[in-house]
Design a binder for these strands. Sequence first.
DNA 1: ACTTTGATGGCCT
DNA 2: GGCCATCAAAGTT
Length: 195
Amino acid sequence: MALDRSFFEMPTLELCLHLLGKELTHDGVGGYIVEVEAYMGPHDRAAHSYGGRRTKRTEVMFGPPGKAYVYTIHQQHCLNVVSGKEGHPEAILVRALQPTKGIEKMMERRGRADNLTNGPGRLCQALGITKAQYGWDLLESPLRIGPGIPVKRVAVGPRIGIENTGEARHYPWRFWIDGNEHVSRTRKAQKIIEL
DNA sequence: ACTTTGATGGCCT
DNA sequence: GGCCATCAAAGTT
């Protein structure tokens, strides 16, 4: 059963739990989402929309949820799912996938056979995601999120790579499938959520 | 036009 | 776990 619009209208932290296990594909190449991070908008110092910053880059986050927010950093692309209510610039960073489809294509794009999708930049490279996909609708475009596998145990901990954001560095807004081999970095979980 | 700063990845120990 | 290359975006002048 396909997802519908209301799926993306869930509160951001709740949507994080529901995104885990769903299948993300671009032109049929992709895998199950196994790791995400929430970026909670104007009051989240680690978010690009901190302070309500509204620029050409962050604009899509101010619109309706369910769209792709793609940005570049260190010559890499990162994919976020726009979440929350329209006018509230929140998003969820997709940090890792468990490859399911088009693995040959991924190896070709990555130029190697391992570490295909265990990181936000790596998975974008493997799936061929660039700023060309900025703003694409994740229900009705070649870049889409669909049904996947059930998830039992979700691990929770602080987000990665935001050490210079004051108190925000400690917020428990990173979620991953407990024990999954494709998570970008192994770290001890602060707590486990049983679904 | 110039300066600062990374929501990283790859490789090293 | 640590180091750092390298460039686009954002902010500043």
